[in-house]
Design a binder for these strands. Structure first.
Lengths: 164, 164
DNA sequence: TATTGTTATACTCTATAACTATA
DNA sequence: TATAGTTATAGAGTATAACAATA
């Protein structure tokens, strides 16, 4: 070893694979959140729009709350914010007048498309250093993991409340 | 299509690779947090112990705060909790009596080893469905990504405060 | 009585700013 | 004057519990 000890020791920290995935995943989530700020949305908003933009297109608040494992009271605030921007509407439910049917608006669909463009920007930033086969392999592995762990498509664990 | 429409439509949600990584990563972080509760620690505590257990073994609070990109005031609370359990000590610094030198205790090293065992339990839970080559390939890819994105080893983005 | 959506409140976590003791 | 660590306070985000309307 010929390095003079004036130079600070390079930190030697060993971490496992789960840490690496969590670290990169959290970085991706943070960056996505930063990028979304330009269109005044949060990842949670986009997650809701994503579900409303996919089939089935209509569902009640309770159904959505169950799907996301989010508390109904928490969902109210999220929906208020999205509805205030005119991105979704709460329609009265003819069959059960207690409940409301959620539906994404035209403006909501447009905004969701912008969010998807931002997602593609993010993917470029994150994965451009991977080869095409590397990227495809990673994608397949992550899908397999998400599936085996029982993670529902489009449902981020960040929604989940801490008592279940 | 011969599925009767009485059966609920299977949701069709498409997500990108960054979402998948973030989703699995968040799930891993949540599970790790749950497992750590059995030894009364949080992932943040373990992250600090991991750095103190690795070389260099001694550093000041400011140095640690910079390393983790955590606010000094926030670090104080974290260190208080760890020190109260006797896992680290704040030694007076002879060279500068304003600062304190952090050092992990014997008990802290033992506790950190238990945390590492929990990490291995977690890795088994998460990745047992992958083949050995698949797992090695994933590990290499994630290391490459973390490196290219400039993520410091052992420094989880969850530490980072929101104003930088 | 039970459920849907809502509101009000409490709690936890984090950021900001003021403070002390040293330099 | 500036810096290291600390404490006090404020703010954001989330969970709990009570509520009105409807079933």
């Amino acid at each position: 070893m010929n390095t003079p000890n004036v130079i600070p020791v390079e930190p030697e920290v060993k971490v496992g694979l789960s840490f690496l995935v969590s670290q990169v995943g959290a970085y991706a989530a943070n960056t996505f959140s930063d990028l979304l700020r330009t269109i005044d949305l949060t990842p949670q908003h986009v997650g809701i729009l994503r579900i409303l933009a996919s089939k089935p297109h209509e569902l009640t608040q309770t159904a959505l709350a169950n799907r996301l494992s989010v508390l109904p009271s928490r969902l109210v605030a999220l929906l208020d914010e999205i509805e205030a921007r005119g991105l979704l509407e709460r329609k009265p439910n003819e069959e059960d007048r207690r409940s409301k049917v959620l539906r994404i608006t035209k403006k909501g669909e447009k905004t969701f498309l912008r969010a998807e463009m931002i997602t593609r920007t993010l993917e470029t930033q994150l994965f451009s250093t991977l080869s095409e086969t590397e990227r495809a392999k990673l994608s397949a592995t992550m899908k397999k993991l998400a599936d085996n762990l029982g993670l529902a498509p489009g449902v981020h664990p960040a929604y989940r409340n801490h008592n279940q």
